[in-house]
Structure formats: structure tokens, C-alpha cells
Amino acid sequence: MAALRLGVCKAMTEGVLSSLQTARIRTVTDFVSKNPEEIAQICSIPYKDVLSIRRVLLAQYSAFPVLASQLYTNALSNLAIICTGISELDQLLDGGLYGGEVCELAGETAAGKTQVCLRCAATVACVHAQNVVYIDTCGSSSAERLVDFIPGFDHSEQTSGFYRSVKMLILDNVAAVFYPVLGGQQMDSVALLEQIGQRLKQLAMDFCLAVLVTNNVTSGLDGERRPSLGRLWAHVPHTRIILERTLAQSEQTCRQATLVKSVRMKTPASATFNLAVCEQEAPG
């Protein structure tokens, strides 16, 4: 997709480039997808040069192979499993949130999405002593509630070099900013949604971050709840959890988390936990 540039290789001279451009061959894709003989003919460039340019371009823009054993060694040294601070949820996720992956929490209003996010943020900051980037799009984060989750909170602590040890990225809530532009005549929003998804995955991979995003749910015609933002977005998260309120025997509101998509655990599986209990456990 990138434009053809001077200096890709020796054969790509100014003359060659301009004659390619007059033949409406502007991007790498244009060049590579055309028959080399045809290009040589149309632009009157030596066939050998066309081939060498083509070889360089293909080498430059193709993915390179990595051995699975290498990947495994990397995983052993880099992989981080981050506890969410809610043991039932950790069990459901096979230990916690995995670095390099995007996990989505979907739920109705007041299902407890923000609470789980805050709890994760507090756990990462306290237990793991790592930093968290928290992106709040709907003004619902609460520092006071965050303090509830942190035992022995001390005002004086502040660290420098924040971005060096970031282990988690929380985005609460992704649907809030896309609902105003999704649907109708606006086609850009789909591209932007795709962009965000790609960028989140890239960030997760490059910096071995555990990414936690929240999403709304919509109900289908059959009354079934599914995460919103459609099928395109459904490919973004590696793990999907639907959060619901349920009533336990003690008439206390519990949260039920149902795993609907996962790369390593059986789906569907569910766990029930109480957010209020978490709060009591934390200071103890």
C-alpha cells in the first residue's frame, strides 16, 4: 500500500519512478500485483531492473518467519499473567489477564464493568507494583473507589519513569465514543473502529501489555445478550467476558461473569463473585 519511493534499490532511479507514475503505478501494491513483463513493456524499463525492484519490494514488505521454538522461548521470558484481584475471575481466565492480549468486558449498565476495571488497576499497581494506563471515556472512574481497593494507601508514594513499567492498559468504555458516530451514513466510523482495534492489539504485542476494554451489550431479536459494536469488533478481543448481575441466596447482588470467547479455556464457562466482598477483603 505504501507509495513507491526513490532509493528503494539502485534500479529505482528518478526516470524509472516518473515513468512508473505516468503509467499509474504509484504504490507498492500496484507494482507487485502487475505482471513484470507488462511493466517492462509499458514503462520501457529493462526487464532485469523490474525484476530486481520487485525482489527488493517483496523482501521489504513481506513478513519474516519466526521459529515456534523461538516464540516459545520469548513467551517463557516475557509472558506476564496479571491477576485481576478477583480470584473467581482469575480462575475463569486461567490465572488472570495475559500480557499481549486484549480482553473485553461486556455488560449492561451497572453490571460492574468499571468496578472490575478499577479493581484490576488497583491490583496491578499494588500487588505487582507495575503501572497502569487508564483511559476513561465516560467520566465514570473514581479515585476514591480506587483507594478502597488499596490496602494501606500512602499519599507520599510517587514514582518516576512511569511509562517504563506499564503493564496494563484499561479502556473504559470503547462503545461510549463510537455510539455517536456508528450507523447511518457515516462509513468512516467503521474504519476508525478497525484502527482502534489494530492499535490496541499492536500495543499489547509490542509492550507485552494486558489490555482490558469494556463494551456495552445489545440484545438480539431472540432476547439474547451479545456485546455491541458488531462483528468487525468481535474479532479484536482475544478474550470476551459478559458481566451480569445476579441475585444470590443471601439477597446480595452478585456478578456473574461468563466467558464467551477464549483462546485457552473452554467456553462457555462462568463464575460468580461479589464486588462488595472484594472491598472488605482488600483492607484485611
Binding site: E108, T109, A110, C138, G139, S140, N173, A175, A176, Y179, N216, V217, T218, S219, D222, G223, S228
Partner: peptide, 24 residues
Amino acid sequence: TPGLSGTQLMPALGESWGHACTVR
């Protein structure tokens, strides 16, 4: 609610609106 007998009284404007407010 399909499947459930009876009705439920709930805030208007739909589910997506429910996310708009921080405190309800």
C-alpha cells in the same frame, strides 16, 4: 421479557442510554 411472565418497569430511552450516566 420474552419467556418471563409479567413486565418490568425500567428507565426509558433504551439500554445504550443506561451507560451515559455515572450515577443512577
